[in-house]
């Protein structure tokens, strides 16, 4: 633009009104975004070894369901939450701990002894005893957790 731009009083005040209004809006908008996404941006709590129960409860070759309660802080509430794991061993020494949460959309799977597979009732998914997908929509095998045995007790490493 070659025209000489002159700013008159009216133009200047109009510009300043927009500028100050913009600053005030940003002063509300930026903290508002931080405020809204705050809880989502929070890091997951650290993982803990969660005690499941006695090793002797695990039947050889059959996934056994363990239920345990943990305390979880959500917002301003401390909740008791029930966690379930299937523990499976072929030889009584090496254990595999599987989540009972279907990897498709989060329903709970259960072990069907007759068919020798895990079944999810929501969309008819089937998983093998080691968690591999046999049929249905799940995108990946059941989640596995690190598991250890100490003094005849089983522990899994999970979110606290």
């Amino acid at each position: 633009m070659n025209e000489k731009r002159t700013i008159d009083r009216r133009g200047f005040l109009g510009f300043m009104t927009w500028a100050i209004g913009g600053i005030i809006s940003a002063g509300f908008g930026i903290p508002a975004i931080a405020y809204i996404i705050g809880p989502a941006a929070r890091k997951e709590e650290e993982q803990n070894w969660i005690r499941l129960g006695s090793v002797s409860k695990v039947e050889l070759g059959t996934p056994t369901l363990f239920k345990t309660e943990i305390e979880r802080q959500t917002g301003w509430i401390t909740n008791k939450e029930e966690l379930s794991f299937y523990v499976f061993t072929e030889n009584g020494r090496d254990f595999v701990a599987l989540s009972n949460i279907c990897t498709h959309l989060g329903c709970r799977v259960r072990w069907i002894a007759d068919q020798g597979q895990f079944f999810c009732p929501c969309h008819n998914a089937a998983f093998a005893k080691n968690g591999e997908v046999i049929s249905g929509p799940p995108p990946r095998p059941l989640d596995q957790y690190p598991v250890k045995e100490e003094d005849g007790q089983l522990f899994v490493l999970g979110g606290g």
């Binding site: 903290p31 508002a32 931080a34 405020y35 705050g38 809880p39 941006a41 917002g75 301003w76």
Partner: peptide, 12 residues
């Protein structure tokens, strides 16, 4: 919770 835990909660 708003005042102490949420980012900018004290400000809002």
């Amino acid at each position: 919770y708003i005042t102490t835990q949420i980012p900018m909660g004290w400000l809002i």
